[in-house]
Design a protein around this nucleic acid. Sequence first.
DNA 1: GAAGCGTTATACTAT
DNA 2: ATAACGCTTC
Length: 656
Amino acid sequence: MSDPHNFSLNPQQEQAATYDEGHVLVLAGAGTGKTRTIIARAAHLIRQGIDLQRILLLTFTRRAAREMTQRLYQITGESAQGIMAGTFHHFCLYSMRRMPRHFGLEGANVIDRDDQVQLMKLVRGTLKQKALPLPRAAEMVNLRSYARNTNQSMEDYLKGHTDYDDELIPLIMRAAQGYDQRKRENRYLDYDDILYIFAKTLNEVPETRDRIRAYYDHILVDEMQDTNPLQWLILDALRDPAHLFCVGDDAQSIYAFRGADFRNVHSFTQRVPGATILRLERNYRSTQGILDLSNWLLGRSPLKYGKKLKAHRKAKSMPLLRDFDSDFDEARWIAKDLLRHRAEGRAWSDHMIITRTGHGARAVESFLVEKKIPYRFVGGISLFQAAHVKDLLALLRAALSHHDELAWARYLTLWRGIGDVTAARLITKLRGENDHAAALQQLTGAPKMSAEILEPVAQARREKADPPLAVANAANALAKLLELRYDKWSTRKKDFELLARLAANHRSLSAFIETYVLDPVTASDAAQVDREDIVTLTTAHSAKGTEASVCYLIRVEPGMYPHFRSVGDPDQEEEERRILYVAMTRAQDELIITRTYRTGGYHRSAWGGFGKAQAAQAKYFFDDLNDSLLNWNGGSDRTDVDYDFFDPIQSWDRDF
DNA sequence: GAAGCGTTATACTAT
DNA sequence: ATAACGCTTC
């Protein structure tokens, strides 16, 4: 790919990339060169004389955006930095930050999901009634988010599409309203607001819409099947004269929980009259053996995707299936297999480990750490979600805004003698002040308050133009407190150095924080910041759009595919099928599927606790697996496990 | 009344 | 691993 002359397209790809007659939807199956075609499209437009800055490239993840700009740079040979490439959220926020007054965004701070849940908890606490079991805060955040993303009122959604009864619905609606109100008071912007405010303004304020619409001639949209109604409102407002070039695959739609409907690619020509549908059908990525299994899985669906991937490549390579007694054995084997591949001279980066759930990869992750196999966990727990990192960020956020009450509450309760109640009382003193310094003045001399508590905030505010310094000093200010609070402090402390390193890339504290709220960095990510040759550990969702020579699909067992939480809802079960399909079709040369029926440690108890476990057993995608589709290396792995191979799990077994 | 501590429940996917 | 909850202590 580094040689631009080597960049050849097949006739279908060529036709799509150079189509100049209006709006297009390209239906592109897995591995058919979707990314390559989008890049070629952008390159074609540039050759036609289109200004780079007039092309908007919307991708599903920031990772995809980064990859595309890099590849575009390699092909066009000129700086591709000017192209506007990013996720819907990035694009909307960027556009709104450019003209904040049009959107009422002055002084607003973006909050992540944890903060959303936190805020909802506060509201939930005021509404709790003994007789009525109000849904958990996290669930209510989901409900409200889904309603927003599907562009319907909370009431319509709750009444039309959920099972909540007439008594509970008004209460949930009040919770949602209370949440919105607290959000306004604290000048918070959640992920959904970013899309919602942008979409609403474009659709209600023609002057603003016209102004933004005038910036772009071409809008290229990746992963169209996973856009939701709110995102569609935005695309719809921005098209004409701009041309839409959307690429998608209904069989890879895996974000229904976020309001996406894979049927949106089917109705494209109704929504965009005169649009053309093009297809990419030849798979260049995988061997036919891998595609046969993938096709089999999709073919078992009651939904007709009308898709059968055919390999361009000659190699066949049958997928491998291995059973293990426990997730520990499974993880141990995978680490060993990786080391074996490495010894054979293969690069770490040729390997991807795909998991359905974040915590399903725990055993594997601990073996990777123990065997010193370099890896990056995409979709894992963010560095910013670790308790001690949140504590430090709370201090920084308190320094940036006296309206950020979640941050203030967290920061104040770190100090001895200040609990929830005192913190809440102190925070009320901050309200109504326009100026940060004046707000701090209100706290000075208040009961339980001290200069020791306030000074770090004031100092961080003075240092807000020097993020790494602010981080380092905040870490110093909190060191004593946090050391008492957490065990394994020496390990946790290292995260602050990582944080300071990340902060060094930003010119302001607020830009630093906002960047990582929108684009979380996992601890493994931050630790491996300079390494290229590493194994990728990823959730199936985050794996979409990527590929690797060797893919390990772990925990492919009953209760995982389909995930037990989806059992009972046919639509959700079918989405689970697509998730497994996406996971399988990432593999180029080797697809290794592992599973375990009995799990040790944590999962044994978790299984028993969930009522759906048995139902899940009855709904396993591999139940009627055709043996001719893979090499089943079944039975216990015991005989070939080397028990001298260190087992890091022991220590957690005791914890549970 | 509020802080602090020990115990227990919780855990899918993500911008 | 983390936070909510209930109980005890100041």
